[in-house]
């Protein structure tokens, strides 16, 4: 088992599992920074996975497929934004509703197009290619580790850099964070809160779409019903554990990917795979408890210090 974990096969499996999680983790980071409680990533991913598969199948163009996948995911985000930002729907309920729409709506579309209920394997959809990096692929040992992965895997790491850059170095990123931290204060200095949240959600939906499309155009060669299987929630878990920091979110997403890879391996050895499957969720819970306990301790320390400051010396 240990020898497996240190093998190149394991790295491949980790990246296969981790790629969609890193993407949806970045989606959750964007949503989290704008302080939008969005759980609709699952629905966005499902629709994007479907859009990518059918788009590429009917046009035989990878780019057109990707565009349709993104459009589907953005449409979900638009509905979410309209109901939450304009009709005051509670974000949690809108998110749950859209996830439900994702599971049912995608099956409907599959049935409409193929007459089958479960998957689009009858459609000639395309896959994102694996990329061999010239020169690097010829380096011994390092070559096979760095080169030869799916295009989307490289884009996932690019997405992390992009999110980091957006949040740290651009006006838009700072605005999103200002809105997220204190919407009223941001509004008072002339930032359009709704518009900013809307933009953040749109960016979010693009990342979720990439994660979803990897599922149907890389991880598997076609769309199957409910194929994201809770990955949207794992993205939210990673973001929560990382307190919204993009690099740490990536770290946790990959860690969760690793635990899924271990689970798959356990299954092939007929070992119970359920423990590996529940790891991401358990780690997140424990992590949140530790963070909560720490911040509570800090709170009480600050409160104590404040009490000392404000108690007049003679009052004892």
């Amino acid at each position: 088992m240990l020898s497996y974990i240190f093998s190149a096969n394991f790295l491949d499996a980790l990246l296969r599992m981790g790629t969609p999680l890193v993407f949806v983790g970045m989606a959750a980071v964007m949503g989290g920074k704008a302080n939008i409680l969005c759980v609709a990533y699952e629905g966005m991913m499902l629709f994007a996975a479907l859009g990518g598969a059918i788009g590429s199948a009917y046009t035989q163009s990878l780019l057109a497929g990707a565009a349709l996948g993104m459009a589907f995911s953005m449409a979900v985000a638009m509905i979410f934004a309209y109901f939450v930002l304009y009709l005051d729907t509670k974000p949690l309920l809108a998110g749950l509703a859209l996830n439900t729409l994702g599971t049912g709506g995608t099956v409907y579309v599959v049935y409409l197009l193929t007459g089958m209920k479960l998957d689009t394997s009858s459609l000639p959809s395309l896959k994102f290619p694996a990329v061999d990096i010239p020169l690097i692929k010829d380096i011994p040992i390092l070559g096979p580790i760095l080169s030869g992965h799916n295009l989307m895997t490289y884009l996932a790491f690019l997405a992390v850099a992009l999110v980091w850059f957006l949040l740290k170095k651009t006006r838009l990123g700072l605005r999103i964070q200002a809105v997220g931290q204190d919407a009223a204060a941001a509004a008072s200095v002339g930032i359009n809160v709704r518009k900013t949240k809307f933009i953040a959600l749109t960016i979010s939906s693009i990342f979720a779409a990439m994660g979803g499309m990897y599922m149907s155009m890389g991880y598997l060669p076609y769309f199957t019903a409910n194929m994201t299987a809770g990955r949207g929630f794992i993205g939210i878990a990673a973001q929560n554990l990382a307190v919204g920091h993009p690099l740490w979110t990536m770290f946790f997403a990959l860690l969760f990917g690793a635990s899924m890879a271990v689970g798959n391996m356990a299954q092939s050895y007929r070992l119970p795979s359920q423990f590996a499957a529940l790891m991401p969720y358990l780690i997140t819970l424990i992590g949140l408890v530790i963070m909560g306990a720490r911040s509570k301790k800090q709170d009480s320390l600050t409160a104590e210090a404040a009490m000392k400051l404000h108690t007049p010396a003679g009052a004892k």
């Binding site: 119970p272 499957a277 997140t284 819970l285 949140l288």
Partner: peptide, 30 residues
């Protein structure tokens, strides 16, 4: 967790759902 450690309820609830699912499946399938 919400009361004692200030963990956001919805996140904890999402996570515990899956923990219950997989723990339950482990018990049933083993």
């Amino acid at each position: 967790l919400r009361v004692r450690y200030n963990v956001v309820t919805i996140v904890a609830a999402l996570m515990i759902n899956y923990v219950a699912l997989y723990l339950g499946l482990y018990i049933i399938l083993n």
